[in-house]
Nucleic acid binder design. Structure first.
Lengths: 175, 175
DNA sequence: CGATAAGTAGTCAAATTTGAATATAATAAT
DNA sequence: ATTATTATATTCAAATTTGACTACTTATCG
């Protein structure tokens, strides 16, 4: 998953250190749809630097704190950004849904327990959908077009998901 | 992603060697929603064996061909299968859609090119949806409940996706 | 006031995933 | 008839991801 696009995209806005990127991801709610361990972010920075897409601008030493390494995007990096942007737009949504694998083997499972597990899932999807909808309402006009569009898409996907999961429960696991 | 559930699930049906699992995944069309490199499958078998979930039943030597290693599921493995089944049912769908990252930075991109890229994506989604729909019609009653249910879910997700992407194009990238 | 949590900034070994390489046989195409 | 492709069956080095750990600072809470 393209951490590289994330890093390049955020560096398009100005110089940043890895931890700052972390913060931005949280602050903008991107953590809903960009899941990764922190380590991967530092790795992405390293790789991008090695290939000349970004470069160190400054190392800030505040007493008794780990150093912050400020990175900026290079010209080559901006080109790479444009290309990655188009590549990601072409990538189809991943149909690799965990439930699909489970459904494949549902006939070997205990319907009662599977029902309980799916209920947990539905609750969680409902919660997330509610959360996103409240963000949509609260922030109304204060969101960028991109952020609004992502919200719309995510909410639609979550609703499709709920309808489908409820149908599975109604059909009582094929029994 | 749970290759382990895949392996255990298929071994529930009887002893198999890794390559046979590969074939089954293709034959049943699971390759639409289980994406992995071949190597990962052998790794999954190794890990499952080390932890006693499966065991070697036989090594078949056909002249001038690589050996096939037949694996069977153990009692411990069957318990693990039941647990994994429930775990996977609880995992929420991944909202980590490649387009989300791209949309976040759409304002730095060329609308014309982005439009072309998205068009490619829409075509591909349309093609896949058509493919799945034709499978749904052709095989009608010959599909298991699980397989039918997966098809229904996948098709619904793809349609939600198309509606959303078309809306993005109509809105002309926020301009 | 002292303990405890939460924030700052990053490193690193271990687990996992990828993708190319190997080596042979059978089938299809020109 | 010979070249090319597909199928069989697996291995392994390299790329990537994870998650635990370090080490210090600033709030928080009874």
């Amino acid at each position: 998953m393209s951490l590289k696009l994330l890093v390049l995209g955020l560096l398009m806005e100005g110089e940043k250190h890895p931890y700052e990127v972390q913060q931005q991801v949280k602050a903008r709610g991107m953590d809903c749809y960009m899941k990764y361990a922190k380590g991967s972010l530092y790795y992405a920075f390293d790789q991008l630097e090695k290939s000349g897409m970004i470069e160190v601008k400054e190392v800030i030493r505040e007493t008794n704190r780990p150093d912050k390494t400020l990175y900026g995007i290079t010209e080559k990096g901006e080109e790479q950004f444009q290309q990655l942007l188009l590549e990601e737009l072409q990538k189809p949504m991943q149909l690799t849904h965990p439930i699909y694998a489970a459904l494949t083997f549902a006939s070997y499972g205990d319907p009662q327990k599977m029902d309980e597990a799916l209920e947990v899932n539905i609750q969680e999807v409902r919660r997330l959908a509610g959360l996103l909808e409240s963000i949509q309402e609260e922030k109304r006009e204060r969101l960028s077009w991109g952020a609004r569009t992502i919200l719309i898409g995510a909410i639609e996907h979550l609703h499709a998901e709920m309808r489908w999961m409820e149908r599975i429960r109604e059909e009582a696991w094929g029994r």
